[in-house]
């Protein structure tokens, strides 16, 4: 399968994206967990350097699809995927793809901050080290400091880089995980409910960070907070029962959605 999209121009394309480069493209994707049909014939174009949010009720398939983007579902027994998902035109399910390399390019941040039981420094240094991104100690330090800065955490932890990462506050731990994800120079950052375990202040910090990161990354975020989706994303996709119901300009989706199911969900009317 050789799809090399130049610019976005499909029926799934929101108007505001016409002409913007596609980063992730999915066509006719079906995902099964055993008998359960979790994603049904999904096609979507996700742009680069923008935040796309996935919303929908629990079990709608949004996290399943998010995990398919860096092949996290490979490890789940009984999970089958059909259709095409491409990253910069390259099929990520191609046999020639090295999954480890793919996951370096497509980083992930989870709901619960999960720093390694190591120092703050080691948490961030681990990825660049195993991927051989630094040729000496100075370079590694530079990468760690730059990543912590990008994650907006450096000032808070610069005097305790050797302290355990698990000793930080929840919000700091989550930013540490983001620093860890960006340390390996990814192109895409997937976030699965990154703020659901955080208080409003820590949430605001992460949202501010997401807004900065979108200058350089393609960001996809799954969130249960509609207000968060409205605040941080330029594009919103609504999933329901394994189907992508609507994908469009966030402003439009939250003020005048096209589909009644979207309308019912975001206004709190789902039975």
């Amino acid at each position: 399968m050789n799809m090399i999209p130049q610019t976005i121009q499909t029926p799934t394309t929101p108007d505001i994206l016409a002409g913007k480069p596609v980063k992730i493209l999915a066509r006719n994707v079906d995902i099964h967990y055993g008998d359960k049909h979790a994603i049904k014939n999904l096609s979507i174009d996700i742009p680069d350097r923008a935040v796309s949010s996935f919303i929908g009720p629990s079990g709608c398939g949004k996290s399943t699809f998010l995990r398919a983007i860096n092949r996290m579902n490979d490890t789940i027994p009984g999970c089958r995927i059909a259709g095409d998902i491409t990253l910069d035109g390259q099929n990520i399910y191609d046999r020639a793809i090295d999954v480890v390399q793919l996951r370096a390019k497509v980083g992930m941040v989870f709901q619960k901050p999960n720093p390694f039981p190591k120092s703050v420094f080691e948490n961030v240094a681990y990825g660049p080290r195993i991927h051989g991104l630094a040729s000496n100690k100075t370079e590694l330090e530079e990468i760690v400091v730059a990543s912590l800065r990008k994650a907006g955490l450096f000032e808070e932890v610069k005097d305790r880089l050797d302290h355990p990462g698990t000793g930080l506050s929840g919000g700091q731990q989550q930013r540490l995980c983001i620093a860890r994800a960006i340390a390996v120079n990814p192109e895409v950052i997937l976030m699965d409910e990154p703020c659901s375990a955080l208080d409003p202040i820590a949430t605001a910090r992460i949202e501010e960070l997401i807004d900065e990161l979108r200058q350089n990354f393609c960001i996809v975020i799954v969130t249960h907070s509609m207000q968060q989706a409205a605040r941080v994303s330029q594009l919103t996709a609504f999933f329901h029962l394994g189907t992508l119901v609507e994908f469009g300009d966030t402003g439009k989706v939250f003020t005048a959605p096209r589909d009644k199911r979207t309308q019912d969900y975001i206004t709190g009317r789902f039975g």
Binding site: F254, Q263, T267
Partner: peptide, 9 residues
């Protein structure tokens, strides 16, 4: 309520 969509309108 942080109204959305038609409720907001």
């Amino acid at each position: 309520r942080q109204p959305m969509a038609r409720d907001l309108r």
